[in-house]
Amino acid sequence: MQESSRSLFRLAILCLLPTALFLWLFSILLFALFVWLPGDITGTIFATEGDQQTIASIRVALELEKPFPQRYIAWLYAFLQGDWGKSELYGLPVKTLIAQRLPISLTLSLTSFLLASVLGTTIGVWMTKPSATSKALAIFVQLFIALPSFLVAIALILVFAVHWQLLPTGGVSPEQSWLSQARYLLLPTLALALPQIAILARFSEAAMREILVAPFITTARAKGLTPNKILIRQALPVAAAPILALSGMQCAFLISGTVIIESVFSLPGLGSLFLKAALARDLPLVLALAIIFAALTLLANAIAEMLAKILDPRRTTYDEIPAL
């Protein structure tokens, strides 16, 4: 028992250390770009007037004249303690803004991730059995792989909200009830999940097909196991590892997908916040959000790889992934 727990620890460190290292380097790079861009806060304070002396003294007072390493360490110290600066666009502290918008984005992402993982794998496994439904599913998968997510979202809005008037077109529900909130989030979750379902389905099908030609499947069939049993109990556990790894990579798609979906459905989440901040060049907000998004993406990947390695210890990180 001690052996396995020690190797688990080693595995965790191996997967998470490059992540942490990269995040740190990434923060340095971002901060450097942020600092060395022409123009800083004094441009906003002294819009038109202000002689050089006052500007210079304000710069010293705001510690803008200190050398780069000092500024970076000061920023890092503040960042790690939770002081993420003040947004120029909204005038509110960055942390407040993020805390306000985190629940929606989190709900959206987690629900669509669960939906996509479960449905995607199921559809993928289903498609390996030749039947009428599997051909229909193949068409469905092809459709959603080749369409960008915002078009899927717009199509969903057109059908469900405009034509049939079943669901709202966007925004958040004004009431507090769980049901009405779910109504408002249903279309966005679907729009976010459908492309992922298609990608996962295709990948799962490819992985399963690769496994189904293995000798041990022939043995299972010779033993007289039913096709369903073979699929689910023999082949699927072997396919689980690469599928899991892909799910981790899908998290990147998820996180960037929230930006698009929240923009289409006008949801007040982190994604739309990032978009507005980037277009308005609100640098403190962009800096904090970029680090958060990068951290979440890399963490999801690292955890997925870790789980995949636990499921299949033979795995290395350089296994191929089938094409579109």
Partner: peptide, 23 residues
């Protein structure tokens, strides 16, 4: 090289585009 590729692999295009837009 491979680790750098791995990490870059995880980066969604939208993040990079948003960053360059902002900067």
């Amino acid at each position: 090289l491979l680790n750098a590729a791995d990490i870059l692999f995880a980066f969604p295009a939208i993040l990079t585009a948003l960053l360059i837009t902002a900067l």
